[in-house]
Amino acid sequence: MAGSREVRNKIKSVKNTQKITRAMEMVAASKMRKAQDRMKKARPYGEKIRNVAAHMSLANTEYRHPFLIDRDSVKRVGIIVVTSDKGLCGGLNTNVLRRALKEMKSWEADKEEFEVCCIGNKGLGFMGRVGAKVISQVVALGDTPDMEKLIGAVKVVLDGYTEDRFDRVFIFYNRFINTMKQEPVMEQLLPLTDERIKGDTEAGDGQSGNTAWDYIYEPEAKPVIDDIMVRYVEALIYQAVTENMSSEQSARMVAMKAASDNAGTVIDELTLIYNKSRQAAITKELSEIVAGAAAV
C-alpha cells in the first residue's frame, strides 16, 4: 500500500485545480457576456463616425487631411498590437503575436523599419523579448476599455504619422467571430483606404450623390476635420480593443473548460491506479492469510 497515499494526495490536488479552472470558466463566461454587450454598444458610434468621414470624403473640402493621402514609398511602419493583459486564454495572444511576428520579419527583410505601440501586457512582454522598439504602451486596461487610457498611447502613433515618422500604420488584434472562434487579423489603419471609409454606408442619405458642395465649418475647416479624423481612427482602435476583449473572455472560457475536462481525465486515471493498487494489496493480504491458515 506504499503508493496509495501518494496517489490519493495527487487526486486531491488535481481536484483543487479543477475547482479553480471551473471557477475561472464561470467568471470568464459572465465577463464574456458583458464584453460582448460593450462591443455591441460601441458599434453605433463607429458606424456614425464612418458615415461622417464618408460624407466628408465626398464633399469638396478645401483641405485634405494627411490621413487620407496615400504615400508612395514605405520605409517606416508603425504597428499597434492589441493583446490581453492576462494569460490563461488559450492560443489567443500567441496567434496574434505570431501574425505580427511574421509581418515584422517580412518588413525586416525589406529593410523597412517599424515601431510598436502595445495595448495589453502580453504584447508588451513579447515585444520586449523580441527586441522591437516599443514607442508607447497601455497596460492594465481592466475589463472595461477606457477611451481615456487609450488616447495617450494612440496619439503617439498618430502624431508619428502626421510628422512623417511613419508611412503606414497597421493594427493587429483578435477579431471576434463567435464564442468558439476568434481570428487574428492585421488591418491597415493609416492612410485610410477608401473602401474602409465607404464600407457599407448606403449612398442614400443626405446629398452624398451631388458634388460641388461643402460643409460650413465652425470655427474653421482644418481643426474640425483634424478632430473628426483623429476621432475616427480612435473609434476604430476602440472597436479593435473591445473585440479583442470579447475574444479574450471567450477564449479563456473555452480554455478553462478544456482544462477542467483534462483535470477530470487525470482524476479518472489516478482513481483507477489507486483502486488497482488497493485491490492488489487486499488480494495479497488474503492470500497471505490463506497460506498461513493452510500451514497451521
Binding site: S13, V14, N16, T17, I20, T21, M24, K86, G87, L88, A259, N262, A263, V266
Partner: peptide, 11 residues
Amino acid sequence: FARAQAELIEA
C-alpha cells in the same frame, strides 16, 4: 490566477 497557473502547469 497565479495559483491556478502554477497548479495548471503541474497538472
